[in-house]
């Protein structure tokens, strides 16, 4: 993609509290088209909350989120249109259990985007082919493995042609042997130039996929840089301690 330097998402002075607990303290962040940004940090540091704020699933207290200059505001009537443009994949897959795999993928294009059935199905089948699950099109989610479900969830987000894809700890609920099949799919999306914001605990994956890594702790961005800078030359003590805590030797 040659629009690589265009900023598509701008987060300015974002703040959010649950009661007295500040979960996001003045977050500023820009994401450029085609960029893959990975957020790491300890549990409860606010990374998942940040992701949910970005597509209006959580209300923010202060600050602004702009996608191509248009505000993402859960209180506005246009929020549904904005969410359509920002895909999201969850830790627990959240496929629709009462629909077949094919219908899980085509539901939103048909109902939300009012696309033609043949066209949406053709694209869904192409996506299923790509994720290697064509043979499972008429199965239900409960008949699939975790890794397969998560790949379907990614396909379900992709068919909406989102400008930005948010991945919220998408391998955290998976058995170890299924992590790879999901991460390889994400890597291939990165190679295609998809813009993604990824929250993950898989450090090796973060290093492989990220154009930029952000370390969050206590609701703030503590450090950001290239994967190499963050993982091999951490500047702040907090990041050093965090990386240290993940090691076993």
């Amino acid at each position: 993609m040659d629009k690589k330097n265009e900023v598509i998402l701008t987060i300015g002075h974002l703040k959010k509290s649950y009661g007295d607990t500040e979960v996001l303290k003045d977050i500023d962040l820009e994401i450029k088209s085609g960029e893959v940004v990975v957020i790491i940090g300890p549990s409860g540091c606010g990374k998942s909350t940040l992701l949910r704020c970005l597509n209006g699933l959580e209300k923010t207290d202060e600050g602004r989120i702009l996608l191509h200059g248009e505000p993402v505001d859960p209180k506005s009537a246009g929020i549904f249109r904005m969410r359509e443009r920002i895909g999201m994949v969850f830790q627990s897959y959240e496929l629709f259990p009462h629909k077949t795999i094919l219908k899980n993928i085509t539901l939103a294009p048909l109902k939300v985007q009012k696309r033609k059935k043949e066209e949406a199905e053709a694209e869904a089948l192409a996506l299923l082919e790509r994720i290697g699950l064509s043979a499972h099109r008429d199965k239900y989610p409960s008949q699939l493995s975790g890794g397969q479900k998560q790949r379907v969830a990614i396909a379900r987000a992709l068919i909406m042609h989102p400008e930005l894809l948010l991945l919220d700890e998408i391998t955290a609920a998976l058995d170890p042997e299924m992590v790879r099949e999901v991460l390889e799919l994400v890597l291939s999306l990165a190679k295609e130039g998809r813009t993604m914001l990824i929250v993950t605990h898989e450090m090796a994956f973060a290093e492989a996929v990220a154009d930029r890594v952000i370390f969050m702790d206590g609701g703030s961005i503590i450090e950001e840089g290239t994967a190499e800078q963050i993982f091999h030359y951490p500047k702040t003590e907090r990041l050093q301690r965090f990386l240290e805590s993940l090691k076993f030797d």
Binding site: R52, N55, L57, F80, R81, R83, E84, R85, I86, G87, M88, F90, S92, E94, L95, F96, L107, A108, K111, V112, Q113, R156, A157, M160
Partner: peptide
């Protein structure tokens, strides 16, 4: 409730 979040994230009203 997560089912609702997932549907909303796809742009559903």
């Amino acid at each position: 409730p997560a089912q609702s979040l997932s549907a909303l994230s796809l742009g559903m009203t």
